[in-house]
Nucleic acid binder design. Structure first.
Lengths: 359, 359
DNA sequence: ATCAGCACTCCTGCACAGGAAGCGCCAAAG
DNA sequence: CTTTGGCGCTTCCTGTGCAGGAGTGCTGAT
């Protein structure tokens, strides 16, 4: 016999298997119908052979525990956030993935060469698969490796800096130097920086630059000092900008729980604002495996009526990003969870140029 | 006395000044209220001192001409697309710009260093100014100038190509070479390409590459042939991707004419699809000055209930892009038009690094 | 040509009633 | 003690009828 402890305020109460079974059927039914579920329907749906009256008693208990809620006296019950929580944590039976679909997914991802592109494709895949919004953060390696730098003179003292990290990620920014440099000087500086720092992690480079600037003050020649000075300008604020790729956000417009104009606007504003979403996704990077925020659990008002199913993804055992799906609280978790899970694994594998994809 | 010819089917009819005056007041009233305008309101609003009954007669004429339309028998009148068209073409009195705001605009734009950034800022400005959606295409110069190229070896035969055009636009792509090259060989190839083609326009480079590949077949050494081959791979498909930056699209969610979920979804889908919008904006590049599409005039279903006010913008007398504002058909054209106009001019000026901004 | 007046149409809001869904409670059965 | 059928109650939803308001088209007078 399965028992689950549910805390309510200072009380802790035991829920027997039957109540849980009923909660499960209720949530499933509500997810598929979108209508408050009444005792009669529940009586038929569950294979417990209980009369509606009995079920009403159980429902009253569940309501006391804050797991379900009636919109009004004579409506059926709707799961609350805690109800959903209990459901996804303990009751949910995830659906196995269709093999055909799996290979299709894998094929689509593996077909991408450009990793930048791949992120977009993954996001799109999530959106299409789930008919909700897909989101994938750009992969970020804490130990990003500096590879190569190049300086190109622009007008006046402006210099276009191009630098490459992690084999194939290209960044560029414009810096303003204290005095104008000739192309030859810039070339020398680039050569110097490349020879000094290439292959080291960005953090290491940052530290080395500061140290070298202090230590070498007197010893080395002016050209090298200039080079190190420019390097400092470049790497100082080169914390790779956190960003994500969203897809299928328009899918969310169809859902009745987001029909309210203000809600929709708040949500989309959050999408374009980005910072809040990034913070939220950052929290998911720490956790391993699939993580779920239901409704207000996220703590961000814009997501009050949404759920977020995420998973971190890793390249060669290092967590580099997060992907997930955003949809209404009333979503088919049992399908979404495996989708997110497998997409995270496939994306990680596809981003790893050496290894062959697992599974 | 002002007369305007209006074609209706095979007939052409003259509208006298009074009718036009009334149409003008009607459109203005409707734009500010959003309610169908009745004869009584019109009688008060216009300073023509006409009784509602007379106005009703005029309205009947305007309705026959297809300039206004009643939602139902006992409602007031609403302008049709042709009505709006006549209004913006002949009746509209554009509002002069607030000088204070103008300098603020100019300051914001001029403060941007990175031109990529500037496009986003301009789009945001348009959105904030108009409380609708702003759109700016990335500047595209037909005569993009090739500046510099760099090859970095990746795994196997993959090579990361970084090239710079127009002083400061950085592009990168990954190409797959026929055989692996050593870093030194790649460096040589880059040097060769830079010395051969730097400073020429992309089109010229494309042509030159093809020609050189044919002509030099026997004469030059293998290294140079390899270099030219790679150059061909790079420049072949480097037609700068058309793209635009959108801002404030969520502003559109507030408008009642876009309250319909499907309409909103269609519109947003078009935004993210991009191609349709790009085609539409491309049309605006040909025309000079402010151009307006009202409702179905655009020919794109997604924009059926929207108007688009655009202007091309130029850098040193060459048209390089388009910017504009998207909003409901019922928008305050007399304010939007000068906003779009001035933003286009300021953006063009701000993008020109040499010249001092006019005005 | 303009206008006042009148009848007509259509939208809107409101109140009301009937019906359906579903609950809570209670008392009887297992 | 648990389960169940039954009853009354609450709430929502839908349709209907009615009154008020806004605005039109038409007609006949100025």
């Amino acid at each position: 016999m399965l028992f689950v402890e549910v805390g309510v305020g200072k009380h802790t109460q035991l829920l027997n298997e039957r109540s849980l079974q009923l909660l499960k059927t209720l949530v499933e039914r509500y997810i598929s119908d979108g209508q408050p579920v009444g005792s009669r329907a529940l009586s038929k749906d569950s294979d417990l052979n209980l009369s509606p009256a009995t079920i009403r008693n159980v429902m009253a208990d569940l309501e006391d525990l804050g797991l379900v809620h009636s919109p009004h006296t004579s409506a059926g019950r709707v799961p609350t956030v805690s109800g959903y929580r209990l459901f996804v944590d303990s009751l949910l039976t995830v659906q196995p993935l269709n093999v055909q679909e799996l290979t299709r997914l894998q094929g689509t991802l593996a077909a991408q060469h450009d990793p930048g592109n791949m992120i977009g494709v993954a996001s799109r895949l999530l959106a299409d698969l789930t008919q909700m919004a897909g989101v994938v953060t750009l992969p970020r390696r804490e130990i990003a490796c500096f590879r190569h730098i190049e300086f190109l003179p622009l007008s006046h003292s402006r210099v276009l800096v191009i630098f490459v990290t992690n084999e194939q990620e290209v960044h560029n920014k414009i810096i303003i130097t204290a005095k104008p440099f000739s192309p030859a000087e810039l070339q020398q500086a680039a050569n110097y920086i490349n020879s000094m720092y290439s292959g080291r992690s960005l953090n290491a480079v940052r530290e080395a630059v500061v140290k070298d600037l202090r230590d070498d003050q007197e010893r080395v020649n002016q050209g090298m000092l200039d080079a190190i000075g420019m390097a400092r300008q470049v790497f100082n604020h080169s914390g790779q900008k956190d960003d994500y790729v969203l897809a299928g956000e328009t899918n969310l417009m169809g859902f009745s729980e987001l029909a309210d104009r203000d809600r929709l606007k708040t949500l989309f504003d959050a999408f374009y604002q980005k910072q809040g979403v990034i913070d939220l996704l950052d929290q998911c990077m720490k956790a391993d495996g699939v993580q779920i925020f239901i409704g207000e659990e996220s703590g961000y008002q814009a997501f009050d009526h949404c759920s977020l199913v995420t998973s971190s993804y890793s390249v060669s055992d290092e967590v580099v990003g997060v992907l997930g799906v955003i949809g209404p609280t009333r979503m088919a978790y049992e399908k979404i969870i495996p989708y997110v899970d497998i997409t995270a694994k496939l994306l990680g594998a596809a981003l790893n140029p050496k290894a062959t994809p697992p599974l």
